[in-house]
Design a protein around this nucleic acid. Sequence first.
DNA 1: CACAGATCGTTATATAATTACAGGAGACGT
DNA 2: ACGTCTCCTGTAATTATATAACGATCTGTG
Lengths: 160, 160
Amino acid sequence: MPPTAFEPHDHSSCVSDGVAAVERHCAEHKLQFTKVRRRVLEILLNQHKAWGAYEILDKLREEGLGSQPPVAYRALDFLVSHGFAHRIERLNAFIACTHFDTHHAPAFLICRSCNRVVEAESDPRAGELGRAAQSAGFVIERTVREAEGLCPACVGRASA
Amino acid sequence: MPPTAFEPHDHSSCVSDGVAAVERHCAEHKLQFTKVRRRVLEILLNQHKAWGAYEILDKLREEGLGSQPPVAYRALDFLVSHGFAHRIERLNAFIACTHFDTHHAPAFLICRSCNRVVEAESDPRAGELGRAAQSAGFVIERTVREAEGLCPACVGRASA
DNA sequence: CACAGATCGTTATATAATTACAGGAGACGT
DNA sequence: ACGTCTCCTGTAATTATATAACGATCTGTG
Ligand SMILES: [Zn+2]
Ligand SMILES: [Zn+2]
Ligand SMILES: [Zn+2]
Ligand SMILES: [Zn+2]
């Protein structure tokens, strides 16, 4: 199952499915899926890129949903803490989770040319980090795995 | 070869060996290892933790080596771009490289309790990132691999 | 309604990083 | 030694990212 967001796809379903899944999850877990939180999730889902907090804030401001940084950061904190979105450390930016149902340690592929970001599943105990941790007796609680480079489309464009 | 910095070791040699190796490399490659650059490297080597740019700047200021942010950032840029130091994205901070001779894609173990950071070697093509990239046709140029958790000493302390 | 807890609106502040430009020190060919 | 070029430095100003603090408002519950 290769990542799909680098390829053409029916993107409107990315948005609607994403919102619907979170809506369901919130209802089941008695979480408040408020207007701002919903809108921020929609913004994140709207493109497969990582959004800076202030970019999101600008959108909210245009729509009269809030104008100060804490408004955006609180909504993002909610989404991230419940696994509906992820923070991309390399970019100081945020992206909607594309498989938030599973309890996961995400990894990301970031295209430096078109800025698209794709989330891949990953096992935190696998790979070099896990091996190094094990041999050092280190207990991993959270991992950051981000790869920067060129997506297939941009590689083609560059070498064409 | 397990990482060593979580264990007791002769730390004075960490500093002197590190400076000497960089000094040699700069001489061989006609790079200018200026006073500020050397001092910043020494500061980084002084503890196995990640230093914020402004922490370093404070030290430089005390010593009359510069007082404005660009002084610290320029030295750090030099060190990072030549592989003598690494940026820890998760912490917005910097650490001296512990095996800068080899052409490498580093991975880090970050203890959230004692703040020690250990660098492990890693192959960028291995692990989940590499697999995901390959199946997506993505060309990796740089990776961020950072694990946060508890080092052996701090795990012991917590469960004791 | 009365209450507790979560959420929101707003101001101010903290922290991290970059831009821009003038000046200085060394390398280098003449 | 002289000019000249390049890299390095000093400093002010600004931009970008994130959090603290506090009162007001909403939401569900008895
Ligand atoms: Zn899509
Ligand atoms: Zn691309
Ligand atoms: Zn040491
Ligand atoms: Zn520790």
